[in-house]
């Protein structure tokens, strides 16, 4: 056929295995989630192999803590799914980085990547709208619910004055304040890294990014420390725990999903740091780093909302 030169700057991509493999990884991961948290078979002792792999894995974790219970391998499928997904993401983004280095990301493609990242952050924001919505619902309308649900709430009268009677929140001015300062500081270090890169100071950029990642992982460590404390106090009914009240549920799932997003953001920044160390990311073209920084500021803002409402306002009584 007669050839006809491509005269546009858009990026046409050759066939790629990663999307199909992502779908398969999602299937393995999803099956692992169901097996681990719900279990596909009951434990009867009839078929040890089936029950090892397909019975609920969570029972074993809690029974390990209490010292009884049988062995379950439900987590193995979940782990395989996670590793599979990680492998696919590595391969996919390695391809993107190579295409960028090869000059495929022309100015118009670069603008497209920016639109894409903005849209992605918008949908992340709407995801947190869901969590804040249920938090505000439980905290603003507990009085009404208390009067409707006198037959199911064990202490309806107490719910009329508090969203979670008997639960004392985490002291906002202790670990959470420290985490707030850490995240805000990391917001400045990532900006330092970005501007250092723009001005050609690669050494400064490397240090700035390294510190940002470090602060991110410290944040996650402190959050883990807080969860561990709450886990040990959960039985006494004074610490918020995901199972004791709807406030505890909102507390753990909202801060937990935020923590997950901090982890994602920190890994994103770590990848940028790795690319920087290997000589990637030019001073005039480094959208990977910019996208990571946008994402990092986004998780920062979500944390400020969590800190203000889930920690401070609850402690002072809504």
């Amino acid at each position: 056929m007669a050839g006809h030169a491509v005269e546009h700057d858009y990026h046409l991509i050759p066939p790629s295995p990663w999307p199909l493999l992502s779908g398969l990884a999602a299937l393995v991961w999803g099956t692992g989630m169901v097996v681990f948290f719900a279990g596909l078979v009951q434990r009867t002792g009839d078929n040890n192999m089936m029950e090892f792999f397909f019975s609920k894995g969570l029972d074993t974790w809690s029974s390990t803590l209490t010292g009884d219970g049988s062995v379950s391998g439900g987590w193995i499928i979940l782990l395989i799914g996670c590793l599979f997904a990680s492998f696919v993401m590595y391969g996919w983004w390695r391809d993107v980085a190579r295409e960028s280095a090869a000059g495929d990301h022309t100015p118009v493609v670069d603008i497209g990547l920016r639109y894409g990242m903005i849209m992605f952050i918008m949908q992340e924001a709407m995801f947190f709208v869901g969590w804040f919505w249920i938090f505000f619902e439980t905290s603003l309308f507990h009085k009404f619910r208390a009067s409707w649900n006198t037959d199911v709430l064990p202490n309806a009268a107490d719910y009329a004055t508090n969203i979670a009677p008997g639960v004392t929140s985490v002291n906002a001015w202790h670990l959470p304040l420290m985490n707030t300062l850490i995240l805000l500081l990391s917001g400045t270090t990532v900006t330092w890294a970005h501007h250092a890169l723009i001005h050609g100071d690669r050494k400064g950029a490397k240090w700035g990014l390294f510190l940002t990642c470090l602060l991110g992982f410290i944040f996650i460590g402190i959050q883990g420390l807080e969860y561990a404390e709450l886990f040990h106090e959960r039985g006494e009914g004074v610490a918020p725990w995901l199972a004791n009240t709807a406030y505890g549920s909102a507390f753990f799932l909202a801060t937990g999903f935020h923590g997950l997003h901090v982890l994602i953001g920190a890994i994103f920044l770590l990848v940028c740091w790795g690319r920087l160390m290997k000589g990637g990311l030019r001073s005039d073209k480094h959208f990977g780093l910019e996208a990571a920084a946008w994402y990092w500021h986004f998780v920062d803002v979500v944390w400020l909302f969590l800190f203000a409402f889930v920690y401070i306002v609850f402690a002072t009584g809504p």
């Binding site: 948290f37 719900a38 969570l58 029972d59 809690s62 249920i134 619902e137 439980t138 309308f141 507990h142 619910r145 649900n149 199911v152 709430l153 064990p154 719910y159 969203i163 979670a164 995901l242 199972a243 004791n244 009240t245 709807a246 406030y247 505890g248 549920s249 909102a250 753990f252 799932l253």
Partner: peptide, 15 residues
């Protein structure tokens, strides 16, 4: 999940 959250459980202040 057993021992999981109570977002929609009125007995725990959920809705």
């Amino acid at each position: 999940i057993d021992g999981g959250t109570g977002f929609f459980d009125p007995a725990r202040g959920g809705d």
